[in-house]
């Protein structure tokens, strides 16, 4: 069984020829990788394609992983570069604060909620929807910090930024998340918190 194995042990064994063990790393990180790639693409199919590409790249470059950082930090660096490359190639329409579509999306979510006040969305749904309204960079930062178990230094490594810059950007991203929730989910917030 490989469930209890540490990432570095799995990597060592994969490098020694037990390639099937790589599936354990895929299972561990696929949701996170997919969540990030989904932010960059307009469809789940594209997001899966990028995520698959990320894991193939990680596998092929596994011998280059020196263990100086966590495997997840190294993997998320590949996610970041692969997503950027993908965007450059496909020139996909990305949700950004400057993109009017975001505001359309926000409006539709908001009006949808107002149209059906009986429906009570969970906190998960509300946070998920609010994050979707953020720019890719803001959503990525918040996801890396809260779900990727990455420190500011590690996020800095992944994104090629100074930890202090990451800190400031994270503050701003959370402020914008708060604003989105205040603006578009006020009634839900009221339902949740009474």
């Amino acid at each position: 069984m490989s469930n209890g194995l540490h990432d570095s042990e799995i990597i060592g064994r994969v490098l020694r020829g037990e390639t099937q063990l790589f599936s354990e790393l895929v299972n561990r990180y696929q949701n996170f990788v997919f969540t990030i790639t989904l932010r960059y693409s307009t469809s789940r199919e594209d997001a899966e394609e990028i995520a698959q590409d990320v894991f193939v790249k990680a596998y092929r470059s596994l011998a280059d992983f020196r263990g100086d950082s966590k495997f997840s930090t190294w993997l998320y660096t590949i996610v970041n570069t692969t997503c950027i490359t993908f965007l450059r190639k496909k020139k996909l329409d990305v949700h950004s604060l400057d993109n009017e579509k975001v505001f359309e999306l926000a409006d539709s979510v908001d009006s949808g909620f107002k149209a059906n006040q009986i429906e009570t969305k969970s906190k998960h749904r509300m946070v998920h929807d609010a994050i979707q309204m953020l720019s890719v960079d803001d959503a990525k930062l918040i996801t890396l910090f809260y779900k990727g178990e990455q420190s500011l230094e590690e996020i800095g490594k992944i994104l090629g930024l100074e930890p202090n810059t990451v800190k400031v950007k994270l503050h701003r991203a959370r402020t914008r998340l708060k604003e989105k929730m205040e603006t578009h989910f006020a009634e839900e917030v009221r339902d949740i918190f009474g």
Partner: peptide, 30 residues
């Protein structure tokens, strides 16, 4: 809210299998 309620999206059920099939075509580069 952010620390307790951010949910991760899940790829399709076949995702791991697809990745493993794909990497079967390659070797780990030196």
């Amino acid at each position: 809210l952010a620390s307790g309620h951010i949910t991760l999206d899940e790829p399709s059920m076949r995702f791991t299998k697809n990745v493993m099939e794909e990497i079967g075509k390659f070797q780990i580069a030196p």
